[in-house]
Design a protein around this nucleic acid. Structure first.
Length: 557
RNA sequence: UGGGGAAUAGUGUAACGGUAGCACUCCGGACUCUGACUCCGUCAGUCUAGGUUCAAAUCCUAGUUCCCCAGCCA
């Protein structure tokens, strides 16, 4: 995903702060020169573009330094986790190109070891069973500015703690009755160090361990040790875990086990969208979108269905960089990334979104001229295809103006324009209905290609083209920062009412055979893909992945 | 009246006491059978105030602003 600067290069490629840390570790001989990272999702939802940043970072670092990359599920809370999410996450990470080889793990794989370590900490007097209720524990914890006070159960004997913990595991107590806590410091200014919970009682069915356990380890007690077991060297997570690092270190140190280094980076924020799982879920459950894979969603599934490529997403993640500053990336960068990729690889096609009929009066009814068209203007190796030109064709309504401004390079009465790949037409007559609406144009066709005309427009045969449903997507939110809302409003108030427009378009006949997932550039319009869910032969559905840049649209304003 | 982080063009990101660089955007231009692509060019930045130094984005002092933390969530 990233590449090392080639030796001998004048100036070394700039390195982000994590690469610099690893450079220094390697130089110091840490971890015997190993680099081992991991992506540790909790299987409680679908992955989104923010996770892609983490996946690309972790996986890219491993690749760059000749190291390894694990996929590990942090499945310590059975109340929220499901196999369905595990499956979708595996598919998404793989689709993005993350390669964990044979190293897919689950924190639940380590439950027995984690339990044994907890017993060891009890024996060291570093952990105790606490009978405080959740409410009481909150009171004892103190506040951000006041120290907490010790639990009355903090000084239980090792024997009693061992007995109680065993009985917790054996299922003798109801949910919430007791916890196992680390014995650290109730006066610590970092609240995470105020005797944090290691185990809680939850009589819940776990998607992997079933009913084997009724006590479950907390994130803080699980994460670092799981990293340690896997031999992770650099445990990369997001900024909100900075306050947890001392705890991460405490467990590794007290247990005397391999001690990975936790490094925090800023999570991804994008304009015109929201990123939190909760809000994404709300969009789905309140039916503001059609589902988790709605092409307007920035979930990996949504992006995939929208027509994004893994390569584009990786290029995007590469370009945004990694730092500790809470930044917000302009959504246009994501769109640029897919345009850049698809411009290279997407075959060109002709399609008309809003048809205006044009009669080529010098062609016979029933006459079909075969027009050869290149599949890619810069890549002759992609070959050509044949387009049928007939007496009746469709052009885009936008490509004709009765009273055109001087810089309008398209068709106007008495004017000429080039039909992409075919020839030049001259507009002789504008036909209108009784209401004065333009119904069709009468033009004469000139197959001579040599003449220069200013404009070129796309077209589709009205008799040979096929119709298709085309879904034109725009940003899901109209506001650049949907979360910055006036008092009394929520992010939902800035939903863009026009984020989806459906049109019945006409596409060149060859597209009738396009397989679901196929991507094209509809010339002068944008990049489109055949929808993998709803498209069928005979009932084509295209999703607009991204528009092309349109300097004429700016000019008009 | 706590603790932990972060501030560099419009947006991101480098520079680690020694020429503030790169990318995207914007704007201008060239090219063009896609008003696309490509190419060329312009504009534009160190949060503030002091200090140290021949030299400060970088070190020091004092402020300002923003983010995170009081789950038996992760």
């Amino acid at each position: 995903m990233s590449t090392l600067p080639t030796p001998g290069e004048e100036k070394a490629a700039s390195r982000n702060f994590i690469e610099q840390i690893i450079d220094a570790d390697l130089a110091a001989g840490k971890n015997a020169g190993r680099v081992h990272t991991r992506f540790p999702p909790e299987p409680n939802g679908y992955l989104h573009i923010g996770h892609a940043k983490s996946i690309c970072l972790n996986c890219g670092l491993a690749q760059q330094f000749g190291g390894k990359f694990n996929l590990r599920f942090d499945d310590t809370n059975p109340a929220k986790e499901e196999q369905e999410y595990v499956d979708s996450i595996i598919g998404d990470v793989r689709w993005l190109g993350g390669d964990w080889e044979d190293r897919m793990f689950f924190a639940s794989d380590y439950f027995e070891q984690l339990h044994d370590w907890a017993v060891a900490l009890i024996k060291l007097s570093k952990a105790f069973v606490c009978d405080l209720t959740a409410d009481q524990m909150r009171e004892y914890r103190g506040t951000l500015v006041e120290p907490g006070k010790n639990s009355p159960f903090r000084e239980r004997s090792i024997a009693e703690n061992l007995d109680l913990f065993a009985r917790m595991r054996a299922g003798e107590f109801p949910d919430g009755a007791r916890t196992l806590r680390a014995k650290i410091d109730m006066a610590a200014p970092n609240i995470n160090l105020r005797d944090p919970v290691m185990y809680r009682i939850k009589h819940a069915h776990h998607h992997r361990t079933g009913d084997k356990w009724c006590i479950y380890p907390s994130y803080d007690y699980t994460h670092g040790q799981s990293d340690s077991i896997e031999g992770i060297t650099h445990s990369i997570c997001t900024l909100e875990f900075e306050n947890h690092r001392p705890l991460y270190n405490w467990f590794c140190r007290e247990l005397g086990i391999h001690h990975p280094q936790q490094i925090e980076f800023a999570r991804l924020n994008l304009t015109y969208t929201v990123m939190s799982k909760r809000k994404l879920l709300q969009l789905v459950t309140e039916k503001h979108v059609a589902g988790w894979d709605d092409p307007r969603m920035l979930t990996i599934g949504g992006l995939r269905r929208r027509g994004y490529t893994p390569e584009a997403i990786r290029a995007f993640c590469e370009r945004i960089g990694v730092a500790k500053f809470n930044s917000t990336i302009d959504m246009a960068w994501l769109e640029d990334a897919i345009r850049e990729d698809l411009n290279e690889r997407a075959p060109r096609a002709l399609a008309v979104m809003r048809p205006l009929k044009v009669v080529l009066t010098n062609l016979e009814p029933g006459e079909v001229r075969e027009i050869e068209a290149a599949n890619h203007p810069q890549k002759p190796e992609l070959g050509t295809r044949t387009l049928p030109l007939t007496r009746e064709i469709f052009i885009e309504q936008d490509d004709f103006m009765e009273e055109a401004p001087k810089k309008f390079f398209r068709l106007k009465p008495g004017g000429e324009v080039r039909l992409r790949n075919a020839g030049i037409i001259l507009c002789n007559e504008v036909v209108k209905d009784a209401a004065g609406q333009i119904t069709e144009l009468h033009c004469t066709f000139d197959p001579d290609h040599s003449r220069k005309v200013k404009g070129t427009i796309h077209w589709v045969s009205a008799t040979r083209g096929v119709s298709a449903e085309v879904r034109l997507y725009d940003h899901l939110f109209a506001a650049e920062y949907p979360e910055d809302v006036p008092e009394g409003q929520t992010f939902l108030d800035s939903i863009n009412p026009n984020s989806l427009e459906m049109v019945t378009a006409w596409v060149e006949p060859g597209l009738a055979q396009a397989e679901p997932g196929c991507r094209f550039q509809f010339e002068r319009l944008g990049y489109f893909c055949v929808d993998v869910v709803d498209s069928q032969s005979g009932k084509l559905v295209f999703n607009r992945t991204a528009t092309l840049r349109d300097s004429w649209a700016k000019e008009k304003e």
